[in-house]
Amino acid sequence: MIDRYELLLALAVALFAMGLLGVMVRRNLLVVIMSLELMLNAVVLSFVAAAAHTQTLHGVAMTFFIYVAATCEIALAMALLVLLVRRRGTLDLAAGQELRG
């Protein structure tokens, strides 16, 4: 029988990997941000699993901090996104490469 804790951790890793892949390969900015959130949630899942496994509250407390930070982050990200879209007229990441060396 597979341990529930290990299963949850494996799920978290899978979610993180999918998120990372999404950040790396998707061109649509909205999707990239969604993938970022997915990575964040994978981390939260690992915290929660650890908390349940060790029967402590540290991991649960961490979850709240992460969600506060994530909320702030997404609010800023959306504002930036709107400005960026207004400037470029597209959500495509490949459209702007102003920082090319």
Partner: peptide
């Protein structure tokens, strides 16, 4: 070295 700086966000992620 400047060639590394592609300006593409996703390359930086890598």
């Amino acid at each position: 070295f400047a060639r590394l700086q592609t300006g593409e966000l996703q390359v930086y992620v890598i």
